[in-house]
Computed example of a mutant assay.
Amino acid sequence: MLMRRVVALMVVAMLALSACSSGDPDATASADLRGSIDRIEIGNSETLAPSLDFVPGLEYRRAETRKVWEGNGGVLVDGQPLLLDFYGESLEDGTVLINTFDGLPRPFLLAPELLGEALYEALRRANVGARFLHVAPPSEENPDEPAMVLVIDVLPARAHGTVVEPRSDHPIVVLGATGEPQITMREGVAAPGELQVATLIQGDGEQIREGSHISVNYKAVFFDTGEIFDSSWDPGKAPLETRIGVGQALLGWEQGLIDQAAGSQVILIMPPAVAYPDKGTMVFVLDILDVWNPED
């Protein structure tokens, strides 16, 4: 599968954060026919994806990686959820092989057992917002595959925006170092009889509407006890991808997330009628990481 190849390529790509190579170039190849990462330019396209400018059909016999920019977000932390955008083309003829920029980014976790040691070691030194350019020659396992060029963006895996004053009758939410919310119930506050929605961090990204594809991190606790019911922040889990307005999500999400923006953090207090009928009122805190509206 293509994603398996992408992950494998990233392991090689991140072995160094500056231009690097593996193996020796073909000494018999003409210099005019030998490809190099320095001859590839990244530009803008009419969509969210980058454009790539290169001479097709050149021979790439070594892997090369270049950090395009550092990123101005926080340094990635062990075990945190991770979102990566990919755009890749065949260096043989420019065929687009993967494009998540015009869709949803791919969720991962920053853990060596999930990413492999090489990729883990490189990404844990990267900042959110960093961009990498990688050239991968055909693999030894599949020598007939074309050489490939990838643009890889490291995206925020937590809410980012303007902090909003919380309601005094809502649970207390405190964020850990990775952005994981800790939710504490207030004493003497009764569970509401209907869905309550409040924004804790106001993002400025794409808005959710019916039909939107979303990527979120979430934590859910029982209103009565504060006990955790479910969390995408748990070790071994990654951000959840779902769709709003088509029956894929809980009714409380379907109603409460409409018009919320990417980058926002939202608290939903959900009675059984819009959550789980047999589990009582629940509290969800969701970080809206990405929103994709296909018709845009």
Rank of each mutant, 00 (worst) to 15 (best):
R209M: 13
P192V: 10
G280C: 07
N293Y: 09
V274S: 10
E64A: 10
H170F: 01
L110V: 05
I172L: 06
L76W: 02
S30R: 14
H213G: 12
S18A: 15
G256Q: 05
T281A: 15
E59M: 06
I42C: 04
S18P: 05
L240K: 07
P294I: 06
I42Q: 08
H160C: 06
L9H: 15
A122F: 07
R167N: 06
E241C: 04
A19P: 14
D78C: 05
G263I: 04
A157S: 09
G188T: 00
V197A: 08
T199R: 12
R158W: 10
G79I: 00
P239A: 02
S51Q: 07
V96S: 07
F229H: 08
Q196P: 07
Q202L: 14
W253G: 00
E254I: 03
G176C: 04
T47Y: 12
L150Q: 11
T242G: 00
L82F: 02
V96H: 06
P156I: 04
V221M: 02
G247R: 08
A31T: 13
R39W: 08
V173L: 01
V55D: 06
N217H: 05
L58N: 09
E121A: 15
P277A: 11
G88A: 11
I208F: 10
A147F: 03
P277L: 08
A273S: 13
L52Q: 14
G176Q: 05
S21W: 12
E113V: 00
R62K: 13
S51K: 02
D230S: 14
H170T: 11
A130L: 03
L123C: 05
L119P: 02
S22T: 14
E241M: 06
V285P: 03
Q196H: 12
A177I: 08
S139C: 07
A111H: 12
E194G: 13
F86V: 00
K279E: 15
P146D: 12
Q207N: 12
V11F: 08
L195W: 07
M270K: 09
V7K: 08
V216P: 07
P112M: 11
R61G: 15
E210M: 14
E113F: 09
P239H: 00
D204I: 11
G103R: 11
K279I: 04
E89K: 05
A198M: 13
L84C: 03
L289Y: 03
E180R: 10
L175R: 11
P112K: 04
E117N: 10
L33K: 13
G256W: 06
L9W: 13
L15V: 15
L257N: 02
F108L: 10
A177T: 08
P271S: 13
